[in-house]
Amino acid sequence: MTPLSALENIHKKGLFGEHESKEQKDLIKISEIKNLLIVQVVQYKKSNVSLKDIKIDGLNLSSEALKVTSNKDTRILWTGPNNWLLVSEKKEILKNIKNDFKDSDFAVTDLSHSRAIIQLEGKNSIEVLKKGCPFNFNEIEKNVCINSVFNGITITIDMIEDNSIKIRLFALRSFGESLYHSVTDACLEFGYKNI
């Protein structure tokens, strides 16, 4: 059985908004990211385990606020004190995660099917986010993640690239379609390409 992604029924490929008279490279590219492993890791307050001793796919959990540690396949997002969101293309590392994070010290929850992920690419992506999110985007840079709201929907923003801007938005799966409509509405004036 093929799993259905959160935006399966609404994300259609093509050009939309005011794309005419604009070059393709100037359009915002929107894609749905699917088939990722998403795991929430929470360290209990009473836990004394040192985070330096634990590595997942070669990455440490950073206790620095808003920091993302990453490699080619895996990104570990700081989402709060003692709280991380691990996002990876390598689904097989779930087994390692469950082995490395002991039940007595960590709560590990597989959220792979409970998030919708929208990826925005292009120089105007930040302008789109500014329309619905109160965060000061002048402060955001590569490998920074923030939890915030977009038109009232709680989201996690992961800045993957800050030169050729590439941003991932995570929302609860049930808010995925609503967020998608909000984001695509905000993209209309710039023109966007769904890929």
Binding site: A65, L66, G80, P81, P134, F135, N136, E139, I146, N147, S148, V149
Partner: peptide, 10 residues
């Protein structure tokens, strides 16, 4: 104190 300056909306 954890995330820095944020809007009241959050």
């Amino acid at each position: 104190p954890h995330c820095g300056l944020r809007s009241q909306n959050e």
